[in-house]
């Protein structure tokens, strides 16, 4: 099993919003490690770039969050643009990249906290896990 980590799952874990089981699984990476599309970095970066402006985090906390992301060991994959394009109709570009990457992997599973993604019907039950 190769786990594709969604940006929302990473952010929610960084903010301590995941339940015990989901957090523990994230903290014990699979043998193959985590993979994510390059859009992951943009989405996570955008969130923590704005968090100090929104008053959610201090600059130091946002910086710490990005340093944690850097250490987390996520392999970024450049998803072919037309693979993502196939799914972009109902989804954001970032979501489309996550979906395309999951579908391109043999045994790929998307770990996400975005219920809309799991309900989209693009991924089968075995291809996604909603972290709560």
């Amino acid at each position: 099993m190769t786990v594709v980590l969604d940006a929302s799952a990473m952010i929610d874990w960084l903010l301590g919003r995941l339940g015990g089981e989901a957090a523990a699984d994230l903290e014990r990476p699979p043998d193959e490690g985590f993979v994510a599309p390059t859009a992951f970095r943009y989405e996570v970066g955008q969130y923590f770039r704005h968090a100090p402006h929104n008053g959610e985090l201090t600059v130091e906390q946002a910086t710490a969050a990005m340093e944690i992301v850097a250490d987390f060991g996520i392999e970024l994959v450049d998803v072919p643009v037309l693979d993502a394009w196939q799914h972009v109709g109902r989804l954001s570009w970032g979501d489309a990249e996550h979906i395309a990457l999951t579908l391109s992997l043999d045994g790929g599973v998307l770990w996400t906290t975005d219920a809309r993604l799991t309900r989209s019907g693009v991924l089968t039950e075995n291809q996604h896990r909603l972290l709560v």
Binding site: A7, S8, I11, D12, L15, R17, Y42, E43, Q46, Y47, H50, E56, S92, W93, G94, T112, T113, D114, R116, L117
Partner: peptide, 13 residues
Amino acid sequence: WGDTARKVDKLVA
């Protein structure tokens, strides 16, 4: 914190 995925979409948009 609100809905993380929606917030990310909005920030990018």
